[in-house]
């Protein structure tokens, strides 16, 4: 069994990579898949906090590549889901403590035993980015509907393509449908046309995200959360399920498509 390794990246910081990894990982594990999430942001680890597993860390990613522990020893199991694990980043080390080849070997090893390996990429396009991308077969680029985030996403997509990572999908995070309708925010269609990468999902802006991050419980566990539902849909699409794009939530993207086809 060989699983898929997927890197979640963005270029710009603070657009929701870690939230995306935590929610997609949780949603996939809820479907019964075996999932490992790797926090590749060495020196600025976050994923463990978002997952509420901060106090269980003994070993980390750098310990694995330096041979100080076995891979399984650094894998922390989720509090709720038995098939969900995270490998935390080292907080007290630098990004160059890991080499791209080591990351590649680790991802290959994990993919042998798990269905999905999700890599939480650090912001920026330097060493940390190269490490995170090295072992991935597939990339999810997260952007918010802001010009600066889109610019960085564009750059990152160019770098991914140059790294021969061609399976790239786009997630638009924190879309505010009201603002798009008023013309104060770039619409989904504008962003997709500029970045020319297939869209895999749109997550609406929501205060719930802040609450869930602070509580350490991913949103996909909450019933009735729209952002959580959006992440569940993305997870389903990642899994190859055909989930239609919901008009209202996706900021009028589909209504435009419908208009084009006269529907």
């Amino acid at each position: 069994m060989a699983g898929r390794t997927i890197v979640v990246t963005s270029g710009k910081g603070g657009v929701g990579k870690t939230t995306t990894v935590a929610n997609l990982g949780t949603a996939l594990a809820k479907k019964g898949y075996s999932v490992v999430m790797i926090d590749a942001d060495i020196g600025l680890r976050n994923l463990d906090v978002v997952m509420g597993l901060e106090n269980r860390i003994v070993y980390n990613l750098v310990d694995i590549v330096e041979g100080k522990c076995r891979t399984e020893q650094a894998m922390i199991r989720d509090r709720k889901l038995k098939t969900l694990h995270i490998i935390p980043a080292a907080q007290t080390r630098e990004k160059d403590a890991v080499k791209p080849e080591q990351m590649k070997a680790l991802c290959g090893e994990l993919a042998q035993e798990h269905d999905f390996v999700l890599i939480d990429c650090p912001a920026g396009i330097e060493r940390g980015f190269k490490n995170a991308v090295a072992g991935a077969q597939q990339a999810l680029v997260v952007t918010t509907p802001e010009v600066s985030a889109i610019r960085d996403a564009d750059r990152v997509i160019g770098l991914l393509e140059a790294n021969l990572l061609k399976d790239i999908h786009l997630i638009i995070n924190r879309l505010n449908v009201k603002m798009v309708k008023k013309g104060d925010m770039m619409s989904t269609a504008d962003i997709v046309s500029l970045l020319s990468v297939p869209l895999i999902g749109v997550v609406p802006e929501s205060e719930e995200v802040v609450v869930s991050t602070n509580r350490g419980v991913p949103l996909v566990h909450e019933r009735g959360s729209r952002a959580g539902a959006a992440f569940q849909k993305i997870a389903a699409r990642l899994n190859g399920e055909n989930v239609p794009f919901d008009d209202d939530q996706d900021g009028g993207f589909l209504s435009r498509v419908k208009r084009i086809f006269g529907g």
Partner: peptide, 23 residues
């Protein structure tokens, strides 16, 4: 498509079959 961060110089004419994105 020339994405952000790309720089292309031509000593003659230059033809881009794609977009030229900001940056």
């Amino acid at each position: 498509t020339c994405r952000s961060g790309t720089r292309i110089e031509s000593p003659a004419e230059l033809v881009i079959l794609g977009d030229v994105n900001p940056g």
